[in-house]
Design a protein around this nucleic acid. Sequence first.
DNA 1: CACCAATCTTTACATTGTAAATTATTCTTG
DNA 2: CAAGAATAATTTACAATGTAAAGATTGGTG
Lengths: 203, 203
Amino acid sequence: MAEKQTSAGKDDYHHGNLRVELLRVARDMLEAEGINALKLRAITREAGVSAMAATPHFGNLRGLLTALATQGFEELACTLREGNGRSVKDAGLAYVLFAVRNPGLFTLMFRGDAINRHDAAFTHAAQQSFGLLGQLLAQTEPPKTHKSDVGGEVGQAALWAKVHGLAVLAIDGLLAPLVVQSGFADHQEAFLAQALDAMVGPV
Amino acid sequence: MAEKQTSAGKDDYHHGNLRVELLRVARDMLEAEGINALKLRAITREAGVSAMAATPHFGNLRGLLTALATQGFEELACTLREGNGRSVKDAGLAYVLFAVRNPGLFTLMFRGDAINRHDAAFTHAAQQSFGLLGQLLAQTEPPKTHKSDVGGEVGQAALWAKVHGLAVLAIDGLLAPLVVQSGFADHQEAFLAQALDAMVGPV
DNA sequence: CACCAATCTTTACATTGTAAATTATTCTTG
DNA sequence: CAAGAATAATTTACAATGTAAAGATTGGTG
């Protein structure tokens, strides 16, 4: 019973890096077919393994999605770090651009009912991204919040809400009518940058 | 074969208002158990009818959820109309408060992969809410957007993004740490009002 | 009353997630 | 190198879901 199929052939068992392969396949399907195409059977089928092959690596579907979302937050942190010492608008724009360029992943990262928010790795990655974002956003802006906002939490929430709202609305396609109506045609990213300008820096 | 159970008893067939009853049950389950408790079989079971009883009224599960989301947008429009001729902050606050007081419903209203956005009634209700919100937000604010924003679409997107982002983050529980850290304790709504103040009116 | 359309039920089936048991492979240790 | 243990993957089985199809029940209209 030597060979099984004409497939890769290396070794069916102990695939070696099935974990990263499953994450890769899942991510491709996520961006290609949307978030509710992320069925465990579909992912494993696409990867050429049996349905239960994911169990040793992720436990269950929720575990796999959590790992994928974790990866997303790690990449987001990287992206935020790249546009580093620059202005608030750059940090905000990096956030929004990451979202609209990875819409499925970004959606998954914030879909609390599909992942396990108490997972250690996830919590770590998310906290890191959030802390980094807050730090970048606050570096230029202690805006005119109410005097009771001693710690700056209100201002930080306001800044985060601005960029996050823009990201979510853009991903959901709800800004498309405004974009075309404003003459930006198919340059959504330019429109988003303009909207950010209108939001974060009216000092 | 007169009676069936000790239930309402009126008539098992031709329930009369099964449509509104199913929507009521679904909404209760939505807010009580979260959005992924909205299974067709669970809803019909809770309503005391067979699994396929929803078909004549909604077609399928997506149709039911779409009707529920439509109802949500109608209520949102009502809420926006109530706090009418007042300031932008009031309109924005009405939007955010509706969200945090109906978190499941609000989430469903914007979950494009669970509903049918091309449904006529849904489109009508959503457009009505969006138009009303834009009108309320724009009535006080032609803010210092770029000179190229002739139609005001950029400013409108910015304002919508602010309130929507605040709503989404609050519903997802992501603002909770900031709320407690800022000393607002369990008065999240006061925190949200403060954040809105910091966002929409820094003229 | 007879008929029809609408409403609801029953049955059946494909699909999903995953628990349990099994098999195959690799690693460890003598 | 030869077991034995540990890991990885498969197979099988089962409960739950959405819904298509066909049958049963009711109300309204001729």
